[in-house]
């Protein structure tokens, strides 16, 4: 795909469906892991400049807990699972059974690896659903964790894209706790395929690249 702005409505629908299938599977995995019902939003497909994109998803300065994975295989790209730090703490407390856990107490190894593992499971289920749907081989890398400003962590996922242009296509799906639907949304999956991967994905689903 030479220019991300040349996407048609059909392409956008396909990308939205990818977010739907991937995050749906991940939400199911999370709900099994935490033994509570997790809902997901309708995926948003954002096509924006890098600066615009940062604003659209909450501003570059917002502090987040972020698990990052590189996707390798037929359609390489970047995947982020982003949570507010307080929410990440709640997940970790539940996973390790320690109600006093906090990221403020310095680098807690157990807590960090629990969060990394959570990201690993969720991204793995997102990607395996995507791989089934497209019949493409997709392998997640080892997950990496950072708790820092959104702009600082997400810009790493834009580097490959930025070599090809100034626009990013972001597939964003939010998940939240069903019992508190009006509270702030709990987590986001961001899928940022590399520029060449779009044609591969569209071809795999029987739609021409342009």
């Amino acid at each position: 795909m030479e220019d991300v702005r040349s996407l048609t409505g059909t392409h956008i629908d396909i990308l939205r469906e990818i977010g739907n299938i991937g995050a749906g599977n991940a939400a199911t995995a999370l709900s099994l892991l935490l033994n509570k019902k997790i809902e997901m939003s309708v995926p948003r497909v954002q096509i924006a400049t890098f600066a615009e994109m940062m604003e659209l998803i909450g501003g570059p300065e917002q502090v987040v807990a972020c698990v990052y994975l590189r996707i390798e295989g037929d359609a390489p790209g970047n995947m982020f699972f982003v949570l507010p730090p307080e929410q990440a703490e709640r997940f970790v407390r539940r996973m390790i059974g320690d109600d006093s856990f906090s990221f403020q107490d310095g680098a807690d190894e157990l807590g960090c690896s629990a969060l990394q593992e959570l990201g690993n499971i969720l991204a793995g289920s997102y990607l395996s659903a995507l791989a089934d749907f497209t019949q493409l081989a997709l392998h997640p890398s080892v997950p990496a964790l950072a708790i820092d400003m959104l702009g600082a962590v997400l810009s790493f996922g834009l580097l490959e894209l930025s070599r090809a242009g100034d626009y990013a296509i972001l597939i964003d799906t939010a998940i939240y706790d069903e019992r508190r639907p009006n509270e702030s949304i709990d987590g986001h999956f961001f899928l940022l395929p590399d520029p060449e991967s779009f044609s591969t994905i569209f071809r795999a689903l029987g739609v021409s690249g342009r």
């Binding site: 590189r70 890398s141 080892v142 990496a144 964790l145 950072a146 820092d148 580097l159």
Partner: peptide
Amino acid sequence: MFSFSAAGGDMMRI
């Protein structure tokens, strides 16, 4: 920001 090598050597030291 991320201290692992899976992201590809080229971009790690960016």
